[in-house]
Structure formats: C-alpha cells, structure tokens
Design a protein around this nucleic acid. Structure first.
Length: 155
DNA sequence: GCCAACGTTGGC
DNA sequence: GCCAACGTTGGC
C-alpha cells in the first residue's frame, strides 16, 4: 500500500466538498502534468492513502485524510471544449489525461504547511523540498504516520 | 502582486 | 536535440 499527497485549491474542491459529496467520493480531474499523471496511471491503487492538501489559499496545509477509490480512467474534462481543462490534442481514442476517484476518510485537525516545516519526521517530504510544486507527490509510511498522529492529536 | 522555480513549446 | 521564450504554480 502506497501513500500520496494530492493538492487541491479549496476554491475549486475543498476537503469539505469531498465530505459532502455522494459516498464522500469525487473524481480527481484536471491534472495536466505528466509526472503527476504517471503516478496516477502507473502506481496508484484503490485503497492507497491520500493526504488531501489545500494549496493557493490563506493557510495552505493538509485538510484531511482520504483514499484512492478507483483505478485510473480517462479524465472527462480533457474532451470538453467548454472546460478550462480542455485539451484539443486529446481524443476519446487516445486520451492523454487521467483521473482517479478520491474518497474522504477522516477529517482530523488541520495541519498547516508552516507547522509541517517544523516537524523533523517530514524533513525529507517531497512537498517540502525547494522548488517542489508537483500536484501529486509520494509520501513515505513514516511521513504518513507522523502526519496522522498530529492530525488525530488535534492542534 | 511578486517572484523563484519548474514545465512546455517551438524555431532552428 | 538544444535552448530561449513563455506559461504556470504556489508560497509569501
């Protein structure tokens, strides 16, 4: 079982939005970076752990715990000319972009980025490396454990 | 709004 | 295949 951190702008999809969705599950769409796509396509499995991260907001940080809830499938928004995520080079026959379903599991207490930077267990986390801006990054079992411990302990 | 860092594009 | 120009990300 693998662990991931996935970034979402809460103005687009917040962790609360996922909690409120039917079956607490949403399609993760709009990834337009090959490295992040390849993680979804080649490595993600249903049941993998997901840290749901809020980016580009007042207090960026991990908002909740989720899990991968499907295998990879074509991202529908790439085919929709009206979508912000439309890709004219993608076709139904040859899709370029991938979605997976993500299911909210546990809310916990919000873990701000500023606090993550103070946690020694997270020193090597991909998210925290200089210049790192991938929207999907791997998380080690030790990092996962440290984050969950902190989120369950409360602020 | 700024800007560092990174990814993509396209001319050559 | 190189690399300059451009676009995007995302914290601050």
């Amino acid at each position: 079982m693998a662990y991931w951190l996935m970034k979402s702008e809460p103005d687009e999809v917040s962790f609360d939005d996922v909690l409120a969705a039917p079956s607490k599950t949403v399609a993760w769409f709009g990834v337009r970076n090959y490295q992040a796509r390849n993680f979804m396509r080649d490595q993600m499995k249903a049941g993998d752990g997901v840290l749901f991260y809020h980016s580009s907001c007042a207090v960026p940080g991990v908002a909740g715990v989720a899990e991968v809830a499907s295998g990879p499938y074509p991202d529908a928004s790439q085919f929709d000319p009206k979508s912000h995520y439309y890709d004219p080079k993608a076709s139904e026959e040859q899709p370029r972009w991938i979605s997976v379903d993500v299911k909210a599991v546990e809310e916990g207490s919000y873990l701000p980025l500023s606090e993550m930077r103070t946690m020694p267990e997270l020193e090597d986390m991909v998210l925290l490396q200089k210049g790192s801006r991938l929207s999907i990054t791997p998380v080690t079992a030790a990092q996962w454990k440290a984050v969950l411990k902190r989120m369950r302990a409360g602020g």
